[in-house]
């Protein structure tokens, strides 16, 4: 019995699975008192929920993102959706999918009428995820995709934006494919998790079966390096086979 367990209340039943905790961040081996979770674990859960709630209401650090994206060597544009604030964003997904008038004008004025790939960084439901993980991933991807001979549109930072925000923006840029990196719904143990959605020939009105997703990008989930590899593979295959979504499966590692 460990020192910590000795200090626990005698009514608490410890689980024999404690040794398995090293294999997962899942809340296993919590022990129990009656059928309930002991107070330390119950409060740890509450604290994690509080952190996740705070992540939902966090903001993109636009200035820092601009600086960190500079080494990628591409122009950076700052756009906003039609959702005015977080409360409206949470209840009106339709507004989060559309760039506002100023953003549309900015993209048009930029004057890009075709590129292979446009990359968008969007707050989604956890700005903190994008603040922390997106710049490094973008720098890796820009490198790889440019080396593979693809042309890249400007890098776009988008506030109050949803996944489908990439559709009208990609369309305006004449992109062959859009890649949006977006803060995922914060989980208790991963309030800063990022997802990547890939859409071939982005345009208004597409639904989810037309996209591929690489999720759980954060230090304890899919690492930046792993994510870059997966995303680069999907981008290459999508552009080569002219398709994305359920028709494009990740077949790396499948034995015949």
């Amino acid at each position: 019995m460990s020192g910590e367990e000795k200090n626990r209340h005698p009514y608490i039943v410890s689980d024999h699975t404690a040794a398995l905790k090293q294999f997962t961040r899942a809340r296993i081996a919590l022990g129990r008192t009656g059928t309930s979770v002991p107070h330390k674990e119950a409060l740890a859960f509450k604290l994690a929920h509080a952190a996740a709630r705070d992540a939902v209401f966090s903001m993109l650090d636009v200035n820092a993102l601009h600086d960190e994206l500079k080494p990628a060597g591409l122009p950076v544009m700052h756009l906003k959706s039609k959702a005015a604030d977080r409360d409206q964003y949470l209840q009106r997904p339709d507004l989060g999918r559309e760039p506002d008038e100023r953003s549309v004008a900015l993209v048009k004025a930029y004057g890009c009428d075709s590129c292979d790939v446009c990359i968008i960084l969007a707050d989604g439901l956890s700005s903190e995820a994008v603040n922390r993980h997106a710049p490094a991933l973008v720098r890796l991807l820009v490198n790889r995709l440019a080396q593979a001979g693809f042309t890249l549109g400007p890098l776009i930072i988008a506030e109050q934006a949803r996944v489908a925000f990439a559709d009208p923006v990609g369309q305006l840029l004449g992109a062959g494919l859009s890649l949006i990196l977006i803060g995922e719904r914060p989980g208790l143990s991963s309030p800063q998790s990022m997802g990547a959605y890939i859409t071939y020939r982005p345009m208004r009105g597409l639904t989810d079966e037309g996209r591929n997703c690489v999720s759980n990008i954060h230090p304890a989930g899919l690492s930046i390096g792993q994510a870059a590899e997966k995303i680069a593979y999907l981008v290459r295959e999508s552009l080569r086979r002219k398709v994305s979504g359920i028709a494009l499966k990740d077949e790396t590692g499948l034995l015949p």
Binding site: T24, A26, R27, L30, R32, T35, V37, F45, H49, E184
Partner: peptide, 25 residues
């Protein structure tokens, strides 16, 4: 039955193994 009601992959809260025991009891 999700460990501690916290799904560490799907990032949402469901019900725990404990919750089911609570209901059964």
């Amino acid at each position: 039955g999700v460990p501690g009601a916290d799904d560490v992959m799907l990032n949402y809260q469901s019900t725990s193994f404990h919750d089911a025991l609570y209901l059964r009891r």
